[in-house]
Design a protein around this nucleic acid. Structure first.
Lengths: 201, 201, 201, 201
DNA sequence: TATGAATGAGTATTCATTCAT
DNA sequence: CATGAATGAATACTCATTCAT
């Protein structure tokens, strides 16, 4: 029974967060009212409050996403024998993921989330953590690429990792503001750039 | 005297927008109340409404910034005899500008502005216009660099220009979320990357 | 149980409209604030808005009155074998009703309602509908009185019906502006006038 | 000089009241803002306040109309050798006057004025005075018609005078709510009614 | 747990009026 | 007298949250 109850609770939370997510993508966090959320979720106001303390918690929950799917490819990249190639793979994987996630409005929610994070400390933590850990992994891969002689050893691994993050976030932003943007061409250019950065021996 | 009146009006509008800007940087657009704004501006509520129709107009006015200062260097870059070098200069100029603007909270306001633009059509226009025109200039410079043999002619100029924009916006984002970020190192890495992309003849 | 909920809702709406009505009689529509209304109704502001979209809807609801009580006597008049006598009865009934309604301030609200209707289209519809349908019934009774030889067949039934409406509205107005007015004497004179209009055969 | 000044002042007051009147006819007293008034009058806000203490005074001034034009015919009626005929003439004169005044929106302003008077004591006085003095004159004419054997001596003169006022105000109301109303037919019916009330000797 | 009526602090905005120039 | 920028009290309405059922 407790297990069933727990599963039920998880399902309800998911139902609420999903509904909220759709609202957020459409109207933004602060234009979305609790009413929007519980109507989109087909629930009563009280029901929502049985699962979340308030709107803020729902916003935060919208970003407690499974970095899980990405974890695998990131770990793989760190261990790859061809670090530079792994970076290119990451670019392909993440940029393409962006294009797919755009369909559920993820880009719209994320871009708004950045702004929200600036005035919402707990959310800021979430974002910094994600960016921080991914950034460290990227820096590590860059470092390994340097050790493998694939990249100029004078490059600043941390800064390069930030550049790579910028290519990702910048794409997410530009794609959100202009959905017509062609992710494929963008990705191709990014890979070309990466290739050209390879050490010419 | 109409001229005096006009100047006075402009000054007041500036006073209000500046006050609002500080509030926005601190608390976000929607957490900032009109009261916050007119108190920060040391005005009465009515006074603010004499110059702006409402909050929305103030938000929009906060982004009607003078692209003017940048116009010069962009034009110069387009005409430069060393397009690739000009690109590096642009990177230096704009990234450094970002660091300076951070002091007045511009980064914080801009990042929030992106999110706002997604649910605020007039603001979206403003952003798309800015990004569009700067993007075209960059693409043009890239094209000229290719013609000058400085860059691989197979590169997609539009996509490269988007990458460059990403480096800029991504920096603005990362700097806003983490003010400790070292813009100098980031800029150096970007320039190194650009150099490595130069055609090796 | 939906039925209970519906009854509850109706009761609340009534409670609000009644409270508003008292305020309107006292201070007029536009001098009455929503605060006046929800305090008079002993409710919170939000509660009022759960039942009415806004002040305008409350004003309109104040005039969605049951023409029901009158419907009976009007129908009866239309079918009466003594149409002229029926008209006199209507005069007695309605003018007396006016005197009674004055106690709840109905006259005051109605007089203000006429003015409001001039600048409030939906309300205008309400008034025109009521006046129109009552007017048609009166014209019909007049016509029947003419056919029965009780009234001069040369009289314009529609115009006579307008005269009768004027006697009613004019009384409501004069009584509202001067509560001392003696409705009994006014009614007696109206009946005498009606009698004198009877065809002298 | 003082005379010129006074004339100037009067002209300005008239200019303001006329402008206000147009606004009132259009939007009602309380929907009309002082801004509406001084813009319609092509004046500055301060200018208006140089001639009127405030909005309320302008409203009141809108009803301080020249009963003058009517005074003549009323006096004449009181002295007429054919009082009943005089009553019919009054009906013709005033009802027709209503039709003409409708063009400047007088009906709309008056109907709204009745409602306003109910919550505006000084205005109430104005209305009661006008109605009272006209009513007394009418009662007097009725009394003289009775003495002349033209009307049943059992009729209540005061009540009959109220009925006559009702025919007037009721017409004004119905015409305001329904501008299509045919004043000619209404007047004809009123005169016919009056004729039928004449004593049949 | 679920419901949804009720709460009430909070917010944007208006507008009659003033007064320094 | 004229101007019109400034004032600020007042107002309609919202919406996150609660709690009795």
């Amino acid at each position: 029974l407790p297990k069933v109850a727990k599963e039920h609770g998880e399902a309800r939370r998911r139902q609420i967060v999903d509904a909220a997510y759709r609202c957020f993508a459409r109207k933004g966090f602060h234009q979305t009212t609790m009413r929007d959320i519980y109507e989109e979720a087909d629930l009563s106001p009280g029901a929502v409050y049985n699962y979340f303390k308030g709107k803020d918690e729902i916003i935060r929950a919208s970003f407690d996403l499974d970095l899980g799917r990405s974890q695998g490819i990131l770990a793989e990249a760190m261990g790859s024998a061809d670090p530079l190639g792994a970076l290119a793979d990451l670019v392909g994987f993440f940029f393409q993921g962006l294009a797919e996630a755009a369909e559920i409005g993820a880009g719209r929610v994320n871009v708004q989330g950045w702004g929200e994070a600036l005035i919402n400390p707990p959310l800021l933590q979430t974002f910094r953590q994600t960016m921080g850990s991914v950034g460290e992994i990227l820096a590590q891969v860059v470092r390994r690429a340097q050790q493998a002689g694939q990249l100029d050893p004078d490059l600043d691994p941390a800064a390069v990792s930030q550049l790579l993050l910028s290519l990702y976030y910048g794409l997410e932003l530009q794609k959100a503001l202009n959905p017509d943007l062609d992710v494929g061409r963008y990705t191709a250019a990014a890979k070309a750039l990466l290739r050209s950065a390879a050490r010419h021996t």
